[in-house]
Write a protein that binds this DNA or RNA. Structure first.
Lengths: 132, 132
DNA sequence: TTATTTGCAAAAACTTTGCTGATAA
DNA sequence: TTATCAGCAAAGTTTTTGCAAATAA
């Protein structure tokens, strides 16, 4: 069954604010941004809409290291790099290696569906401040 | 200051049980195994010792997708594959690509410290039962 | 009109911490 | 002997859920 869905104000603004940043915010970081425009919005609404946007294939949840899940305003496959200093997550300028999944299928008993490549290190700002 | 540390019964058994399996258990899965041998052990002790073992470089915490952290009884770099059906995590038979970190350093402003490659799919058992 | 969505609060899921007694060395 | 560690319970953090009111279509 296909959900009927509504374009609510909250839904639009959550997507706009997610796409307005490149740092792959956590739900509560996004909540703060959305709340600046919709003061009565709740964190549950942010979580619910992020989940819904993921299920529609409009955005993606990226499960990188660290405690909280982060969200990416695009749905295309690409890799990420995470700063262990401040936690920010940036896109990596590297083409996904599509052949990896197939190469591995030959060896493992798994049915491979995808992969994720994540780098970590210190971002320029954290390298300067903490790297003396 | 270097910690003085003790080899407690709990610590030894937690490490033994972690190394006895290849599925990279969560803290509570490991807790069940340890409790079979030490009925009065607490989950907090499992968490504390896993954290301590990670800090000593004896084991590693692997932050793959899914809700809970998982633990690997070895400290060497290798890649993992996670079953989206049952959550188990297996090692991947693929040599780590050491050059990746250096290649990326040229492009990004980050100081790269490492990377993680994680595959996902369905394990043989879940492929059979759910794949019809 | 009415089924979806929201806000609020409570619960759930996972992990960490404070404290006191136990214990390895 | 004594500083580290364990067990227990409580708290902390992040995410999900139940429910009545609001609302998009």
């Amino acid at each position: 069954m296909v959900d009927k869905f509504r374009i609510t104000n909250q839904r639009e603004i959550i997507l706009e604010e997610l796409r307005a940043v490149k740092t792959h915010p956590t739900a509560d970081e996004l909540f703060d941004k959305v709340r600046a425009r919709l003061p009565r919005v709740s964190l549950a609404t942010v979580y619910r809409n992020l989940e819904w946007l993921c299920q529609q294939g409009i955005v993606q949840k990226i499960e990188v290291g660290g405690r909280q899940k982060r969200f990416d305003g695009t749905a295309n496959l690409h890799y990420h790099i995470r700063c262990i200093g401040c936690g920010r997550v940036d896109d990596v300028d590297m083409s996904p290696v599509e052949t990896l999944d197939h190469d591995l299928s030959d060896k493992s008993g798994y049915t491979i569906m995808g992969h994720r490549l994540e780098f970590w290190g210190t971002c320029p700002a954290c390298s300067r401040s903490g790297g003396s």
